[in-house]
Design a binder for these strands. Structure first.
Lengths: 199, 199
DNA sequence: AACGGTCTAGACTAAATAGTCTACATCCGC
DNA sequence: GCGGATGTAGACTATTTAGTCTAGACCGTT
């Protein structure tokens, strides 16, 4: 043979399929290369290590997820941000399973490859920023208690509501949005949000 | 040597310590026996397999957790059931980490040892029963939508609220109870619960 | 046509780990 | 004090897995 039969995208796609199906632990170099009928050498020609592969996979997925979340916060719409999780899960069921059913540490445990460290840091910071902006918007302050509430309402509750459906490989039903919305209004309270939306 | 230097409790305790510290995956036969300075033979004299060890550990923990939950439902107090998760986590931080930070499948993947299957089934059924009783109590019906709401308010939300604190090895702060309580009242609505409590 | 870079090909190494097996030490009942 | 039950002791096997390494095929360029 001779020229590029397998590129990084092929390996990432195979890894993604395996991880969606059986979890990140099932993404071994052998399982990935066998799926593509590729030799190990080709894999290690493209990726420095297994961590590099799984790290890239996770990072790409989390960034895709975050885009919509950030957009909702940018638009000053906290409820839309809370509902982004089920909405995105309906559009990208496989990616949502990857991202929401497993933790970051199921992909890369210990230190991350140097090439990805900045990406992970930036991603975490971008999310933190959103929480702060929302806290100011919804609660008028950005203290620890307000940040804790923001995390609950924008991240923890939507994730919890969606999880069992992802496990069953089914899109979250409308009832999930109802539960998230009810919780959102109860925790945030209507008034400040409306004011913030006007302004 | 000669007589019982290591019993099943020793192995379970060592496994528990390791799992609390570094997750169930760190519970290997070698790590457990080295921690006790026990030979492998002694371990396999007490347990049929690693799955038997981790299965027993998980089952004992989940049953201890469930007791308080079931008691609250028996008392007809849904809010207490929802708040049982943070309350129990404060009393048993290590056990809570074990149970709530990892899934059942992180302990035993694939089939469970035959000796534990009944226990796992009974445990799941007992929980299901609680959800049904609560659904009737709080919503007056036991349809799929009511069960879904019950799961959300009694299991998903409390777990989500508590998780980040368990990760940091800290007891859940009072704010967690506030968030769970607020959510509970928003989803259940005050009236029926009060009625049910009277009756 | 020769060359060098790009990539395939897969055998090989090393480490971790579950589980097996045989030998033997100690204790209790007789 | 003898013999079997109980349990220690740890070497050994088999498997899975990440990662290495060498050989060489194909390609465009000169």
């Amino acid at each position: 043979m001779g020229r590029a039969l397998f590129d990084t995208g092929d390996f990432l796609a195979a890894a993604r399929a395996l991880a969606c199906d059986q979890g990140p632990a099932a993404v071994t170099i052998d399982s990935v290369t066998q799926r593509l009928n590729a030799p190990k050498g080709s894999f290690y020609y493209r990726f420095a290590s297994r961590d590099a592969l799984l790290g890239e996979l996770w990072l790409a997925t989390v960034l895709a997820y975050q885009d919509g979340f950030v957009a909702a916060i940018d638009a000053g719409d906290g409820l839309a941000a809370a509902l982004h999780t089920p909405a995105w899960a309906r559009l990208h069921l496989d990616d949502a399973r990857l991202l929401l059913l497993y933790s970051r540490h199921d992909f890369v445990q210990g230190d991350w490859p140097a090439s990805l460290k900045r990406g992970v840091r930036d991603q975490a910071q971008r999310f933190e920023e959103c929480l702060k902006r929302f806290a100011r918007l919804a609660f008028g302050r950005v203290g620890p208690a307000q940040l804790r509430r923001a995390t609950f309402v924008l991240a923890e509750v939507p994730l919890a509501a969606v999880k069992q459906h992802l496990e069953r490989r089914e899109p979250p039903p409308p009832l999930v949005d109802q539960l998230i919305t009810t919780t959102y209004h109860a925790v945030v309270g209507g008034e400040r949000t409306k004011l913030a939306r006007r302004g």
